[in-house]
């Protein structure tokens, strides 16, 4: 009877057999990651492919006209157009200045903070938590804070300088003032990140090396050059690369503090792409520009991954 019933069940439900086949151990792994892959494809890959496709079309999202293919002979026209525009090179230049200024400042401040926090002193943990706070804040909060901080009538910066000069100080009134305003805000927010990475390197230096250096009466600089720096250099490089990639994409702080102004003096690449895409509605141009930006970021990311791999080999 039992055998008969079992045979009957197998014959009645062919889906059961499919289910057993599907859940076989060799297929289970693929099955488990399928939802994530589908989601990733729908939310990331598809829009990326779509926008990449649009970069070879003539299309504006605010027009009823459907996308129109530029033709095989002319398919890179959007790329040629955006790269031949003087405005885009101005934006590249502005972005490069902000990246160079901000990352340099972040490395200097982060490094000095790490040296300070590598030692034990009273209230160290409380102070460390406070120093880490800026990088935990949202970009909008930091942007609005600095916008008010720089405000010429009631901003703290202007009030402080006024004590000495008797005049309100208008940092955001000039190109270089505005660039410095953004660099300072970005460096204030992200120096703690550099500090964290450098600090991780500093605490990993074996104490006996410093004791040996003390016995050899090595100078402070020699101790730093021969003991400390070799331990932190790859972490420092990692911090520089990571922050370079992030600052290269900087949008939020710029848009909130200066909106790319005065005029277009602080229009970074991201702000430029946003304006092309969502204010001028040059959807195809913005897509092409987005992929140029992506290419630069990919190059930087590969550098980053190379450094990460090299560090893991060292360890």
């Amino acid at each position: 009877m039992t055998t008969l019933n079992s045979n009957a069940t197998e014959q009645q439900s062919p889906t059961f057999g499919f289910w057993v086949w599907l859940m076989a151990p060799e297929r289970r792994g693929a099955l488990l990651i399928t939802p994530a892959i589908v989601l990733l494809f729908a939310m990331n890959i598809l829009p990326l492919m779509w926008s990449f496709g649009l970069s070879f079309f003539r299309y504006r999202a605010n027009r009823l006209n459907p996308p129109e293919f530029l033709g095989w002979d002319n398919m890179f026209r959007n790329y040629e157009k955006v790269t031949s525009s003087s405005a885009i090179w101005d934006s590249f230049q502005t972005t490069a200045i902000i990246v160079a200024g901000s990352v340099t400042l972040q490395v200097i401040i982060g490094f000095l903070l790490a040296l300070m926090f590598a030692r034990e002193f009273p209230f160290r943990k409380i102070l460390l938590s406070m120093v880490l706070t800026p990088m935990m804040l949202s970009f909008v909060a930091v942007g609005v804070f600095f916008k008010f901080f720089y405000e010429p009538s009631f901003g703290l910066l202007s009030q402080a300088i006024r004590v000495f000069t008797g005049e309100p100080y208008i940092l955001l009134g000039t190109k270089w003032g505005s660039i410095w305003g953004i660099i300072i805000a970005d460096a204030w927010m992200w120096s703690p990140f550099v500090m964290l990475l450098v600090l991780a390197g500093l605490v990993s230096v074996p104490k006996y090396l410093y004791e040996a250096a003390d016995i050899d009466r090595a100078s402070w600089f020699r101790r730093f050059r021969t003991i400390t720096f070799p331990y932190i250099k790859s972490l420092l490089l990692l911090a520089v690369l990571f922050r370079t990639i992030e600052t290269f994409k900087l949008f939020d702080l710029v848009y909130i503090i200066t909106e790319g102004g005065p005029g277009s003096a602080t229009e970074t690449l991201s702000v430029y792409v946003y304006r092309q895409g969502f204010q001028y509605f040059r959807t195809s141009d913005a897509s092409a520009l987005g992929y140029i930006l992506l290419f630069v970021v990919i190059v930087l990311t590969n550098l980053y991954l190379y450094v990460v791999n090299r560090r893991s080999e060292e360890l």
């Binding site: 405000e151 010429p152 009538s153 202007s158 309100p168 208008i170 955001l172 009134g173 505005s178 200066t258 909106e259 102004g261 005065p262 005029g263």
Partner: peptide
């Protein structure tokens, strides 16, 4: 005007 005009804001 108040000095904020010089910032374009």
């Amino acid at each position: 005007s108040p000095p904020i005009w010089k910032t374009g804001q």
